[in-house]
């Protein structure tokens, strides 16, 4: 066990955990930030996507020790009032079915739009290809990303 200092959604947090613990489980079990989801544990489904210094990463495969000193953003911190253009576009297109993967989808899309505010269809497909939606809401996800891009 070790004391780890983290910056999550702009706030300083301290946890006492095994340094190899993935950020996902630190968020969920130790810090009660459960918006980041567990799907596969091997960085294959994208449900656990967060931002590490603005880059989309799979938190299930990121040891907490390697996140020290970095800015972590989770779905809970993407916007103050849940009104990020992507979140508003997700509502406009009524994207979710079960909803379980959607936080990860939004976090991946947010990182994409930060780097590339007006992506082509192909660039959206490339960026979003790592996030599985078992309900099959892919068309609405793509449409919502395009709507959000127009509003940026």
């Amino acid at each position: 066990m070790a004391i780890i200092n983290l910056t999550i959604n702009g706030k300083s947090k301290q946890v006492d955990v095994d340094p190899n613990t993935p950020v996902l489980w630190v968020l969920r079990d130790h810090l009660d930030l459960v918006g980041t989801k567990f799907g596969c544990g091997i960085a294959q489904c994208g449900a656990c996507t967060i931002h590490l210094d603005g880059t989309a990463v799979r938190s299930c495969s990121l040891p907490v020790s390697s996140a020290e000193g970095a800015e972590i953003t989770t779905i809970e911190g993407l916007s103050e009032k849940g009104d990020h253009p992507l979140q508003e576009a997700w509502i406009e297109h009524d994207v979710p079915q079960c909803g379980y993967c959607q936080a990860g989808q939004i976090m991946t899309a947010a990182a994409l739009l930060k780097d590339n505010p007006s992506p082509s269809d192909e660039e959206i497909e490339d960026a979003m290809n790592g996030n599985i939606c078992r309900c099959g809401t892919y068309l609405r996800i793509k449409a919502a990303v395009k709507t959000a891009a127009q509003k940026l």
């Binding site: 459960v34 989801k37 989770t74 779905i75 509502i91 994207v95 979710p96 909803g99 959607q102 936080a103």
Partner: peptide
Amino acid sequence: KKNVDVQQIITGKPLFGLDYK
């Protein structure tokens, strides 16, 4: 009509069994 849970889904609120504690 929009999904009544959509705001909670897109802001990561605890909704699922796995989120309960």
